[in-house]
Nucleic acid binder design. Structure first.
Lengths: 226, 226
DNA sequence: CGGCCTTATCACAACAATATCACAATACAG
DNA sequence: CTGTATTGTGATATTGTTGTGATAAGGCCG
């Protein structure tokens, strides 16, 4: 569940926001001023900050900058209509969006979703990496020591299967079933042996071993385990 | 210089926007409807789209989605005040900001700056250069060993796409989607193969190879790697 | 240590993916 | 409207991959 921090000095508006956001399914923290907000921000893994532009102790733009420095999470500003100057300052300090009061709950929620989604793009990663080998499963990019590595489709699928079961032994039969025998076509078990060899040849060095042969059983990926 | 595409069916507002943005130092393209907009978008390396929500042929939200699919650049919506529904649809389709009419030039500029800055995390280099090949993406000048190289539009766009993803594999499908029509319009995958060949013929020599084919996957630019 | 089984390596052939070349269709400038 | 450059298409050649067979190397157990 996403954690939202509401920073708004108007008590009733603050309460309203907290209630609304809880209804929308977020875990909500709130603060009435900058300094308690910062404290919460440090201790909780906040995903997004909803912030008023005019806070009593030090304005929100300073707070925004401070937070961004600690950890770069999205900040959405709440600002009164027609405060063009405010808007600009907000963006200057790195705000990700701003919303003019008054606003509806549903709109607010939509904007928050949009901002979170935007931020999520830069953080979400589906990668395997130890010091030497890196595999990006989203783009199918494989690099060894920073240099791109070209794997054939079968080699890649084989590697993915092994990494998905990092530390577990996969029997030859299991691997055959999952990589080849999708439609009942029989393939020589030997094909697996050869492809394991080819994969090793491409990604293992004298110092870096990844695929452990388990005699009489199958193979096991041992990335970052030994 | 940043390239902005203005999509607005109100001719006078369109002209005004174009003028304002040119004053602010952008290179501005404009379209009065969705389909010409899409054409410009495909052929020009647009950095940001300024779009009206109500277009005569197919609404802007559809257009936004199409563009995002081709290449993920920021889209800012222009929408009439109080059109809350519009705003939400805008965000649903991946809009990066929206601005309610009427607005001031200076505010618009600020918002655009903010959005561009936000997107800037993904901004690519403006000049590519290794010892042999040099590409200036601002002026579209390409030189090999100091001598100018003439590329056709498609060759250039193809090369840019590859360089933007230096060291990463781009699948054939990805490239097709981004350089040719992302919608139903069918283009023979073969066209890509041929254009890769032409590009290679122009910029590769016996000693300098740039485009690595990844069998069963696609292609990868390998400038300064390997 | 020596037989027996499992796994590894190498070379090759069949096949599928990609490259190349020539030409036709299209866009485009004058 | 005409000539030219660009881009897509088709036929054919080339290259990369992958399964298979033969052979070598390695582990297991007496």
């Amino acid at each position: 569940m996403k954690k939202i921090l509401v920073v708004e000095d108007d008590k009733s508006l603050n309460d309203g926001l907290v209630y609304d956001m809880q209804e929308e399914g977020y875990e909500v923290y709130s603060a009435l001023a900058a300094s308690p907000a910062l404290k919460i921000f440090r201790t909780q893994e906040i995903d997004l900050v909803l912030m008023d532009g005019n806070l009593p102790d030090g304005d929100g733009y300073t707070l925004c900058r401070q937070m961004k420095q600690i950890r770069d999470i999205p900040v959405v500003f709440l600002t009164a209509r027609d405060m063009e100057l405010d808007e600009m300052r907000g963006f200057d300090c790195g705000a990700d969006d701003y919303i003019t009061k008054p606003f509806s709950t549903v709109l607010l929620h939509k904007r928050i979703q949009a901002v979170l989604k935007r931020a999520g793009r830069n953080t979400k990663q589906n990668v395997y990496s130890d010091g030497y080998l890196t595999v990006d499963f989203d783009t199918s990019n494989v690099t060894a020591a920073g240099k791109p590595l070209i794997l054939t489709p079968t080699e890649y699928r084989l590697m993915k299967l092994l990494i998905d079961n990092n530390g577990k032994v996969l029997t030859r039969q299991m691997i055959l079933d999952r990589l080849w025998d999708a439609n009942g076509n029989y393939v020589d078990e030997h094909a697996l042996t050869v492809n394991i060899g080819r994969l090793r040849g491409k990604l293992e060095t004298d110092e870096n071993k990844y695929i452990k042969t388990v005699y009489g059983m199958g193979y096991m990926w041992i990335g970052g385990l030994l």
